[in-house]
Amino acid sequence: MKAMRLRNNLIIAVCLAVLYFGIAYAMKQRMLSSFHQVNLYLMGINIIMAVSLNLIVGFTGQLALGHAGFMAIGAYVSAVMTLKLGQPFLLAVLVGSLATGVVGVLIGLPPLRLRGDYLAIATLGFGEIIRGLLININYVGGAAGMNGIPKLTTWTWLFIFTVATVLLIKNFINSSHGRACIAIRENEIAADAMGINTTFYKVLAFSIGAFFAGLAGALYAHYFFLIQPQTFTILKSFDALVMVVFGGLGSLTGSIIAAVAITVVNAALQSLGALRMVIYALLLVVVMVFRPQGLMGTKEFTLRTLLRQKGGSGLHDYRKQVD
């Protein structure tokens, strides 16, 4: 078993390396057009958004509708760091993400006592509050936002941060803390009875999700060099939620696939003009009606399934493991 796991990890590492160097080479040789590059960056940012929201919604079972608010905090804090205070990129990204995580704790603590849809509406309200405040703060440009943020998000940084986000969240979920979160999703009262501090784990999942949403915001700000409060409306929160549910609640690989697929579909529909969003919405409804559990359900797409190795069904069904 151990040897197999090592081998699988090696295969994954090699695949990632090939992906990284392959795209880096393609960029250098101008084989990848600029338009495809823009969408590549969007994919990375969307993956971070979807995976981090999946931790909150899919794994811990807490419906949150304010993810765009977290993204905004990360974007604004990191932009202030580089643009106004002249700090290096890495520090800015770190401070932006940490600030978002801290806000996640502060904001998460009281409403996370709420259940289900009350939490949803509280987080929705919080997202609107963040946007409302940003519009009124002249230091960060008010409605016009911040412009001329240095373009520091390179392919290397994007790749490192995206992979790190996925790996860290995956390891969190597979740790005992992650199991506690899943237990809360399955049955909060039972989890409570088993001695799990449900509020603690909910806030933990919430702030980790916020941290990475902040990271996505920081990367966004330093690639698109312009941030405005109107970028982070509730529609952006919906976008992230759509990716999570579309990919499958509780499936990280599902979120990744959905983030990539939705970015591609979105770009492909650009030339349809006014019909673009009509078709996008129609696709969304049809896919949900015919595949309500999302593309992957709660399953993960792993090497083991691909190689049909022995060792259980190969599919991680967290639901079964918890029962």
């Binding site: 338009f35 823009v38 969408n39 969007l42 966004y220 698109f224 312009l226 941030i227 405005q228 970028t231 770009a267 650009q270 030339s271 349809l272 003009g273 006014a274 673009r276 969003m277």
Partner: peptide, 14 residues
């Protein structure tokens, strides 16, 4: 003619 969805990132992409 391409649509930018009234969004900054989309405008850049287009």
């Amino acid at each position: 003619v391409l649509d930018n969805k009234s969004e900054n990132a989309e405008a850049l992409s287009v």
